Deep mutational scan, measured.
Amino acid sequence: GFPHNFQETTYLKPTFCDNCAGFLWGVIKQGYRCKDCGMNCHKQCKDLVVFECKK
Score class of each variant (00 low, 15 high):
Lys43Gln: 11
Phe16Lys: 07
Gly22Ile: 08
Arg33Tyr: 04
Gln44Asp: 15
Cys45Ser: 03
Lys13Glu: 02
Val49Ala: 14
Cys34His: 01
Asp18Arg: 11
Lys55Tyr: 04
Lys35Met: 06
Thr10Asp: 04
Pro3Gln: 15
Gln7Cys: 04
Cys17Ser: 00
Thr9Val: 05
Cys53Asp: 11
Thr9Asn: 11
Gly31Thr: 00
Leu12Met: 15
His42Asp: 11
Pro14Tyr: 04
Lys54Ile: 06
Cys17Ile: 01
Gly22Asp: 07
Phe2Arg: 09
Asp18Cys: 06
Val49Lys: 07
Lys29Thr: 05
Tyr32Leu: 10
Ile28Lys: 14
Lys13Pro: 03
Lys55Gly: 10
Gly31Glu: 04
Gln7Asp: 07
Gln44Lys: 14
Asp47Leu: 09
Thr15Lys: 04
Phe16Ile: 05
Cys53Val: 10
Gln30Leu: 01
Leu24Val: 06
Pro14Asp: 04
Gln7Asn: 13
Ile28Met: 14
Val49Glu: 13
Gln7Gly: 09
Gln44Val: 14
Leu12Val: 04
Thr10Ala: 04
Pro3Lys: 08
Gly38Phe: 11
Pro14Arg: 01
Asn40Trp: 02
Cys20Thr: 00
Val49Asp: 13
Asn19Ser: 14
Lys29Leu: 09
Val49Met: 03
Lys46Tyr: 11
Gln44Asn: 06
Cys45Met: 02
Cys37Gly: 00
Gly1Met: 15
Phe2Pro: 02
Glu52Tyr: 13
Lys29Met: 11
Cys17Phe: 00
Cys41Gly: 05
Gln30Glu: 02
Cys53Arg: 06
Lys43Glu: 13
Cys41Trp: 07
Val27His: 03
Val49Ser: 10
Arg33Gln: 06
Glu8Cys: 10
Trp25Phe: 08
Thr15Leu: 06
Leu48His: 07
Cys34Arg: 00
Lys35Cys: 09
Gln7Tyr: 08
Gln7Val: 07
Thr9Ser: 14
Lys55Val: 06
Cys20Lys: 00
Tyr11Cys: 08
Cys17Met: 02
Gly38Glu: 14
Phe2Ile: 14
Glu8Pro: 05
Val49Asn: 14
Trp25Met: 06
Lys29Phe: 07
Thr15Glu: 04
Cys37Glu: 00
Lys29Ile: 06
Leu48Asp: 15
Lys35Pro: 09
Phe51Leu: 11
Val50Glu: 14
His42Glu: 02
Asp36Ala: 08
Leu48Glu: 11
Cys45Val: 02
Gln44Glu: 15
Asp47Gly: 12
Trp25Asp: 09
Pro3Ile: 15
Ile28Gly: 07
Cys34Ser: 00
Asp18Tyr: 05
